[in-house]
Structures are given as structure tokens and as C-alpha cells.
Amino acid sequence: MAVALGKRESEYSMPHIVVLGTGGTIASSRGDDGAAVAELGAGELGVDLQNTDISIEYKDLFRLGSYLLKQRHLREIAEAVVQEMHRSDVDGVVITHGTDTMEETAYLLDLVHSDNKPVVLTGAQRPSDDLDSDGPRNLKDAILVAANDAARSKGVLISFADHIYAARATRKTNTTAPSPFQTLGGGPIGQIINGSVQFTSCPIRPLPMALPTVEFDNTRVDVICLYPGADDSLATAAVESGAKAVIIAGSGVGNGNPTIVSWARAAIKDGLIVALGSRVAAGPVVPMYGNGGGADLVSAGAVPLGTLPVFQARILIALLLSTGAKLDRWAIAPYIS
């Protein structure tokens, strides 16, 4: 059956999927200078679903590369998703999004997603006017996932290059590869083979949080990466610039140095939230070293982030702080295991 637009006629008719466009490479084309800019609407992305029983509705939120997004944009996406979830005729939502910061948006949406209807993010690695653009296929697959009953109650998903990933701990790990995403400490939870959606596992998710409010927009959480010879200059500058929390991306299992430990101890005493992650791509934070290592940072009051990647942790901490929640290792524990 050809793709139909608009509302389902009854609860027994074809699945109805809303595609929310936000921009990204999937919506980009190159200008005369050769630089790609997001300018296409979601309905212009060339997806072919002529032989599927799926009804599709397209809406555009904005047309931006995801490197341009602010926390306000992430909040607006979350609000738009909830608005579509409340519609009885909608069975799932697909979001077209740039890959650069898809991991942040996907994780925020997963933190607040309280419906059993699927939410699926996708995008592209090559612009729409590339002869080998991957956008149309990725979008088609994402729509198939969102329309599939097996995707229900699995939270927010990323569908990309024939694979399906849970939002948590999924990161872009390659700048240009056709399949750029990887779930740290795990793998895809499903795949799309010749149009058939197949799941192999189900993510474990904590209870959903409340939607972000406008307070989230300007809740600043900064990430400070450590390296040989690093001092406390950047951490101090972050606080002076208005950061409500600082995440230390330590070396190895989450190590600092004596200077950073001294800064953290004083900052925490003054009421700043300090969290401890790792600059390493995968693996948990393990506070086991002294002499400025992770054990000293945790002893000073830094909150260890477990296996949660630092840039997803930044979203979590900003969301918690924006609600006025007291943030300590017990408050964050359900999200980092």
C-alpha cells in the first residue's frame, strides 16, 4: 500500500508515525563554497516507503546542524515529542538529527520518556546531495523501527546503518564512518535486515524524570579534561563563568592530580557539584588511586559517574540541577549503573 499522509481512520488502520525534523547532515546540501548547511525540511528527505503499510506525517522544529544546538533546543525537542505522544492517532515518533550531538539529545529524551510508544533518532553521515547519501535509507529504517510493535516500551532508540541502539551510553565514536555509533560496554540491541526489524535485547531503564523546564536552558555544567601537567585554571574559569557543576574527565579509571584534588575539595566545600568521569572511551570510573588519583577526588566529595559517558552525564546533571534536586552519589546512582 502506498504511504498515506495524515491521521489513521481507526485504531485498526496502519501505524501512524510523526517525523520531527531538526536539521543535521541528513537535511544538508552543499553550497557554492562546498560547505554543507542544513536547509531541507523533513518531508524533503527522499524516503521511499511505497510498499509499506505506514502513515507518515512530517513536521519541522528547526533546521540546524547539531553542533549549533543549545540546551534550549533539546528542551524544545523533548516538549515536541511529548506533544506527539499525547495524540491517540500517533504510534511512534522519528527525529532526524545531526550525528554530532545526537547522543545528548537521545539521552535527555530517554531520561524523560514515560510512554510505551517508540521514539527513534536517526541522521546521516553524508549530505543529501551526495551521490551515495545514507540519509534516505537511515530514515526509512528509523520509520520501520518506530512502527514496529517490538520497539514499544524500549525507550528512546537510535537507528543508524542497519543497527538499533539504546540511548544510554551510545556515542558517536567515528567522525566519518557510515556506521559511527557504538554503545560503550555493549552493542546494538537490534538490527534491520531487508526491511525486517529484529531485536535481540531490551534496555533496562530507571523511572522517567519530569520534562525539562526553562530552568534547564541555562543550567551550565562544564567538562574539564585532564592531561599531563593540567592545573586548576580551566576548572576555576568554569566556575567564574557560571558553571553550577563541573565534570572532571580524568585519566584512566578517573584520576586527577594533587592540584585538581585541592581545587575540588575547596569548590565542593563552597557548594559546587563536582563529578568524576573518565576521558577513556569505555569502562567504569574506579576510584582506586591516591596521590591525586580518583580515590582522593571521591574522598574530597566528587561524585563518581560509573560507566555513564561524560557528555551524557553532563545532560543528566544539568537536568537534575534544573529541578532543584540535591545531587549526590545516591541521587545519581540509578542512572550510572
Rank of each mutant, 00 (worst) to 15 (best):
T96S: 14
C225L: 07
G21A: 08
R75P: 06
A27S: 14
A80V: 07
T213M: 09
Y335L: 02
I56E: 03
V274C: 00
V119S: 05
I26E: 12
D217R: 15
V221C: 06
Q182P: 13
I260R: 05
A237K: 15
K244R: 15
Q50F: 14
T213K: 07
V19E: 06
D270P: 03
R220V: 08
L320P: 14
T96N: 12
G34C: 09
I54Y: 11
L320Y: 04
A295S: 10
T307F: 03
Q83Y: 14
W330R: 02
S299R: 15
A80L: 07
N51H: 08
D134V: 08
Q50C: 05
V239A: 14
I268V: 07
F199K: 02
N148R: 06
L111V: 05
Q198T: 12
K7G: 01
K172A: 06
D110R: 03
I317D: 11
S337D: 03
C225M: 13
N218V: 10
K326G: 01
P118Q: 05
S201M: 00
I317K: 06
A245P: 05
N291V: 10
V253A: 15
A177V: 02
M85I: 08
G195R: 09
Y107W: 13
G186L: 07
G46A: 13
A124I: 12
N148V: 09
